[in-house]
């Protein structure tokens, strides 16, 4: 599974990074989300889903079965 971010919508709340730093970080210029490896292992699914649901801007979404 894969998680993708809409950077036009992201405002740098960094809630995703707080919840699941294994997948999400933030850049040094604007503080927006960086997803270095969008494909995440199944054991992180719960945390990634929580990060998605906790984005106050709705900037994250999980794309099922999609390839990077």
């Amino acid at each position: 599974m894969k998680v993708v971010a809409n950077l036009n919508v992201c405002q740098g709340h960094a809630r995703c990074e707080d919840i699941c730093p294994e997948v999400f970080s933030t850049d040094a210029i604007e503080g927006k989300v960086v997803i270095e490896n969008p494909e995440f292992p199944p054991e992180l699914e719960e945390k990634v889903r929580l990060a998605v649901r906790n984005c106050p801007e709705g900037a994250l979404r999980i794309a099922k079965g999609a390839k990077a």
Binding site: G12, T26, D27, A28, E30, G31
Partner: peptide, 12 residues
Amino acid sequence: RMLLAPMFTPLA
């Protein structure tokens, strides 16, 4: 906003 942003990122 862009001028201030780097000084207030989580990293900073």
